[in-house]
Amino acid sequence: MSEQYVLSIFRGDQNGGEEQEYQVPAIPGMVVLDAVHYVQAHDAPDLGVRWNCKAAHCGSCSAEINGMPKLMCKTRLDEYQGQVVHIQPMRTFPIVKDLVADVSWNYEVAKKIATFTPVNAAPFRMQQWDVDRVQEFHHCIECFLCQDVCHVLRDHDAKDQYFGPRFMVKMAEFEMHPVDGADRIPQLKNEGGIGMCNVTKCCTEVCPQHIHITDNAIIPLKERVADRYYDPIRNLIRRLTKKEESSSSTVPSKA
């Protein structure tokens, strides 16, 4: 086996660091993560990298390969024949060490979301064609590549103003569930910061699960927020009908 790949892997921590080059023999069908493991086993046992399933199911091995956010386990090395493969940690999050980023912010956000609140008890009666829409969102493996690439978080560091694409998908998953009864529209508009998204669709481009994050989750949610807050005619109708209903319920229910 004479063919070799040259990996240039970022080594360092919050005090800085730089890329170091490693030679890795080519094996057919090898993915970037295999190469990183090779380096770990032979040249640098302390090379920090997060991984679990190596099958694109768990979303642990997110990194930036030649500048693009990708899963290392799903990126074939033969895509980069004749090139040096640069591997860096996700940039949007603070670095821990080498390829490991501190993604704890995402878990903080996850806690803020109003959880699934069914209006009746299981077993639910829902048609397959009715749940297709939310099942797409359930494909998410929480690799946080969408959070990484989102310019609102990446370039503007607006983590206090926007939950990020991953959690727009999560909220869409709950919000559009046929049996869900909670109202997340105010949270989406205010704390969730859905208005921070300017639909430039990079999240959709990097999603390894091919979820149509922008078209199927964020934009429909934006439309629902618009229904509630930015639609003067609907507002007027709502106000008129509400007066007739008297003040029976204070909890806003879903349309």
């Binding site: 829902m126 048609q127 064609w129 009715d130 629902r224 229904d227």
Partner: peptide, 24 residues
């Protein structure tokens, strides 16, 4: 997209009015 919302996107459940029916 806005039309898609108006035409049904804002609904959470299409079949809920027709329980148990597999007819779309």
């Amino acid at each position: 997209h806005a039309f898609r919302n108006m035409i049904g996107g804002r609904k959470d459940c299409f079949s809920c009015t027709a329980h148990g029916q597999s007819q779309k």
